[in-house]
Structure formats: C-alpha cells, structure tokens
C-alpha cells in the first residue's frame, strides 16, 4: 500500500476518531432515544424528521446507529483484549516451556482451530446470560489461537538468542527472562494481532447479533439492527438494512488499513497476507 497509503491511513484514523466522538456525544446529536418505539412512524423512509428513516418499531435509525456504535466498538475492543491476554500468555508459556508440554498445547490449538468459531460460540453461549459481557468473553475465548501460535513461534526463537542466554547464565529467573527479555521483543506482533483482533471482533459481534444470539435486542448494536432485516427489504425498506452495514464495513475497513500499515512499518513478513484471525 505505498500508493496513497499514507492518505488512506490518515483517513482511516480520522474516520475512527470521528466515530468515537459521534458515539460519545450521541445524546446531543439525536432527537429520539435509541429504544424509543413509535408505532405511528413504522418503517418510514429517510426524511427531515428521521434523518435515516425508522425501523419496524418506529425507532430512529440515526440514533440507533450512534448508540449501537458504542456497543460495537466497546465489544470490538474488549474482546480483542480478552483474546490477546489468553493468546499471549498461552503462546508464551508454550514456547518458553517447550518439550512435551509445548507439543500438547500446540495440538490443542490445532484442534480448536479446526472447529468453526461461530458454531463453538453458538454452543458456548447457552452457558452464560445474554449480555454484552458474554459476547466479549465468547469472542475473546474463540479467537486467541492464531495469536498463541505466532507468539509461541517468536518465543521459541527468541529463547535461543544470545542476550536471553546471557541473562540466564548470570542467574535471571525464568519469570524475569520471559517478562523482561522475551515478551517485550514480541510487541510488534502483539500490536498487529491486536488490530486484527478488533476487526474480527466487530465482524463476529455483528454476525452473532444478526443471528439473534449476540447483543440482546433491548440494546442497540450494529449487528442486531440487522436482525430479521430480510423481511423488511422484501417490502422495500432498504434503509433499515443499508446504514448499519455501511457502518460496520467502513469501521472494519479503517481498522484493517491501519493494521496493514503497521505490518509494513514493523516489517513482519510472516504476518503478511491473511494470517490474521
């Protein structure tokens, strides 16, 4: 992305900043509450009173977009933190301990990677109450494996580096070696995986909410604004489906552009391509 690359990244950053400001100041920018039902104004097309139209319960779509953005962004960020935490600890331990333990732990990762995460989440979600917290946890719990794999590979090779060996020779504890010498070296990888994690989490949240097993319907999110939307588009209500989808796409796209640029900057060839989550 040399071509206009910098511009695209700037625009992406600008868009995300704008989005953050808009969602944070949502109460000042909307005339209707996100949950305000108005059965006299059901499925109204975009107009002066309802900027982006209304949905099947007469709720204002502009307002729901802004409040829903809060949910989607929060879930995206929090789920990324969960998966980063599990992935980095698991991968670092596996690589650092090595031997049979490492082999076993990596077999587990291989196995988990072979199961479609959406099905695993659908299975797991019955354990938990339906809430935003659940969704963050579940997305985090099902997306840490690629991070663990990469971190493990880096830790394995870093373990043999002279500066780590030297520190071990003068008596540094394994704990000290891992936290002070090995892990800081993996920071670029962690940063790039974190960015990939955010877009994965936003997309997964929207898919789950769309299927009706994500964010509960009483809270607006970009995903659950699209639940059951097939019925309304069949009767011509395109605006119900169009705007939330555009928001998701643009946000994920902006995050992806920034991640791609970071990858180039840190020159991480092993990440090049699609080995994100």
């Amino acid at each position: 992305m040399k071509w206009k690359g910098r511009h695209i990244v700037t625009w992406s950053g600008f868009y995300l900043l704008l989005l953050a400001i808009l969602t944070a100041t949502a109460p000042f920018l909307t005339f209707y509450g996100p949950l305000e039902v108005n059965l006299d104004a059901v499925l109204e097309p975009p107009s002066a009173s309802h900027l982006l139209g209304t949905d099947e319960l007469g709720r204002d779509i502009w307002s729901r977009l802004l409040y829903g953005g809060r949910v989607s962004l929060t879930v995206g960020f929090a789920a990324m933190l969960v998966s980063l935490f599990i992935g980095v600890s698991y991968g670092a331990l596996s690589g650092f301990i090595g031997g049979m333990v490492d082999r076993f732990l990596m077999r587990v990762v291989d196995t988990l990677l072979s199961l479609p995460s959406i099905i695993v989440i659908i299975g797991l979600q019955v354990f938990f109450p339906k809430s935003m917290l659940t969704i963050m946890l579940l997305i985090g719990l099902t997306s840490w494996m690629p991070i663990a794999r990469l971190i493990r590979a880096e830790v394995l090779s870093l373990k043999g580096e002279i500066f780590v060996q030297a520190s071990a020779v003068v008596g540094a504890s394994p704990h000290h070696l891992l936290l002070r010498h090995v892990l800081p070296q993996t920071m670029p990888t962690i940063a790039v995986m974190a960015i990939g994690g955010v877009s994965h989490a936003i997309l997964t949240e929207s898919t789950l909410s769309f299927l009706g097993i994500g964010i509960p319907p009483h809270e607006a999110s970009w995903g659950n604004m699209l639940t059951g939307v097939q019925t309304y588009i069949l009767s011509g209500g395109w605006w119900v489906a169009l705007f939330p989808g555009i928001c998701i796409t643009l946000t994920v796209l902006a995050v992806t552009f920034i991640g791609d640029r970071m990858q180039d900057r840190f020159a991480l060839p092993q990440l090049k391509g699609g080995e994100s989550i």
């Binding site: 992305m1 071509w3 206009k4 877009s199 997309l203 929207s206 898919t207 769309f210 299927l211 995903g223 699209l226 939307v229 097939q230 588009i233 069949l234 011509g236 395109w238 489906a241 169009l242 939330p244 989808g245 998701i248 796409t249 643009l250 994920v252 796209l253 992806t256 552009f257 791609d260 699609g274």
Partner: peptide
C-alpha cells in the same frame, strides 16, 4: 494492483450476512 488491493480489503471488511442481504435486495427484490 491498487484497485485489486483496495477491492480485497473491502471484501475482507464486509460482514458476510450483510453482503448476502444486499445482493438479495438487488437481485431478488
């Protein structure tokens, strides 16, 4: 190359289910 790159990023970012609905809107409705 830039067009293809941009295109692949866009398709990576579109939620699958929404893309399906949009195609339905155009080609079926």
């Amino acid at each position: 190359d830039h067009a293809i790159t941009l295109g692949s990023f866009v398709f990576m970012s579109i939620p699958t289910f929404w893309f399906a609905i949009m195609l339905m809107l155009v080609f079926s409705v």
